[in-house]
C-alpha cells in the first residue's frame, strides 16, 4: 500500500511539473493544482497510513491515526483554493488585457518595453 501511495505522489508530482513547464497559463495552473494534490497527500501521508481509525475520540476505539497532519492539510487545502483563484485571476487578467496567454514574456514584448523605457 505504501508503494502505491508513494508512486501516486510521484506520478502527480511528475505530471504537475511537466504541466507547469508548459507555455500557456491554463496548463500551468492545472499543473500547480496537481502539485498541490501531491504536496497535500505527501504531508498527510507523513502521519502514516491508517485504515479505519479516524481521529474521532470514542470509548470503543483503541487506536487513532495521527490528527496533526490532517489539521495542517485541511487548512492547506482551503488556502490552496484561494491561491489557485488568485493565480487564475492574474492569468485571466493578463489574457484579457493582451489577448495572449503565454506565461513567458514574449520577445516582442521585451523590445517594446525597452523602447518605451528609453
Amino acid at each position: 500500500m505504501e508503494l502505491l501511495i508513494a508512486s501516486a505522489i510521484g506520478v502527480m508530482t511528475a505530471g504537475g511539473l511537466y504541466l507547469m513547464l508548459r507555455l500557456r497559463t491554463f496548463p500551468v495552473i492545472l499543473g500547480m493544482s496537481l502539485l498541490t494534490y501531491a504536496v497535500n497527500v505527501f504531508l498527510f501521508a507523513s502521519g502514516r497510513l491508517t485504515v479505519g481509525a479516524a481521529p474521532i475520540l470514542s470509548d470503543a476505539a483503541t487506536t487513532y491515526t495521527d490528527p496533526l497532519p490532517q489539521a495542517l492539510v485541511l487548512t492547506a487545502i482551503v488556502i490552496s483554493f484561494g491561491m489557485t483563484a488568485v493565480v487564475v485571476m492574474i492569468g485571466l487578467g493578463a489574457f484579457l488585457g493582451s489577448d495572449d496567454d503565454h506565461v513567458d514574456d514574449q520577445p516582442e514584448a521585451i523590445d517594446k518595453t525597452a523602447e518605451a523605457g528609453q
Binding site: A6, I9, G10, T13, A14, L17, Y18, S46
Partner: peptide, 25 residues
Amino acid sequence: RDAGVAIAGGVATFTLAYYYLLREA
C-alpha cells in the same frame, strides 16, 4: 527536456514519500 525534469522530480518525491511512509519521522 521538460519530461526529464518532471520525471526526475517525480522519482525524487516518490523516493522521499516511500522512505517516510516506512519510517518514523
